[in-house]
Amino acid sequence: MMNFQVQALAKELFQPFFTMDDAQLASHGARRVIADKPLGYPCRVGLRDAAVGERLILLPFKHHQVDSPYQASGPIFVREKSEAAALAMNQLPEEMKSRLMSVRAYDAEGMINTAEVVDGAQLALRLQQLLQVQSIAYLHLHYAGYGCYACKVERVQERSLQMS
C-alpha cells in the first residue's frame, strides 16, 4: 500500500487574525466565534475539534490555489490556542475517523481525477488505495456534511534503512 501524510495548515498564516478587532475581521470576511458544542468546530491547524468555550476565528481560505477550473476556497476554523498537528505517516486525526469525509483526488495540474464520500472508519485504507494511482498527485479532504476543507494528503515514500 502507498503511504500518506496529512498536512495541517501552518499556524503562522492565521496569527494576525487573533489580534484584529471585529471590524478588521469583518473586512477580511472573518469573525470570532466561541465553540458552543464539542463537535462542529474543527481546527485546520491542530486538526481537532475545539472544546466548548474555546475561541476560534472563522474565515475564508483559498485551499486549492491552482491554475485550473478546480481552484477553490471556503470557510475554515482556526483555534486561538492551536498548535500544529504532528501526525505520523498513515495517521489520521481522531475527529475524522467517526465522520463522513469527502475525498477529492487531483492530478499534477490541479484537475480533479475522482471524488467520493468515505466513512471515516475506512478512510485511511481508501487514501492509501487512491495514492497508488499514479495519475493522482494529492488529495484534499472535506467534511462531507458542510463540505468544508479539512486538509491536504500527500503521497510519501517510506525511507528504507541502510545497513552499514
Rank of each mutant, 00 (worst) to 15 (best):
M1F: 14
M2E: 05
M2L: 14
N3Q: 03
N3Y: 05
N3V: 01
Q5A: 10
Q7E: 05
L9T: 02
A10T: 13
L13S: 01
F14R: 08
P16A: 08
F17L: 14
F17S: 02
D21V: 06
D22Y: 10
A23P: 12
A26F: 12
A26C: 11
S27C: 01
H28D: 14
G29C: 09
A30I: 12
R32E: 13
R32S: 12
R32W: 13
A35N: 07
D36S: 09
D36I: 08
P38R: 07
P38D: 01
L39H: 04
G40R: 02
G40F: 14
Y41C: 01
C43Y: 05
G46I: 07
L47A: 02
L47I: 05
R48E: 07
D49R: 07
D49S: 10
A50F: 02
E54I: 00
I57S: 14
L59M: 10
V66E: 04
D67I: 13
S68F: 12
S68P: 06
P69W: 08
Y70R: 10
S73Y: 14
G74W: 11
P75T: 13
F77I: 02
E83Q: 09
A84H: 13
M89F: 14
Q91N: 07
P93G: 13
P93M: 00
E94Q: 02
M96N: 06
K97Q: 01
L100D: 06
L100H: 09
L100E: 09
S102K: 08
A105L: 13
M111N: 15
I112K: 11
I112R: 04
A115C: 03
E116M: 04
V118A: 04
V118P: 08
A121G: 03
Q122V: 08
A124G: 12
A124F: 01
L125F: 11
R126G: 13
Q128L: 00
L130E: 06
L130D: 00
A137N: 02
A137W: 00
L141T: 03
G145P: 12
Y146F: 15
G147Y: 12
Y149K: 07
Y149D: 03
C151G: 09
C151L: 08
K152R: 12
K152L: 06
V156W: 15
V156A: 15
E158H: 12
S160C: 15
Q162C: 04
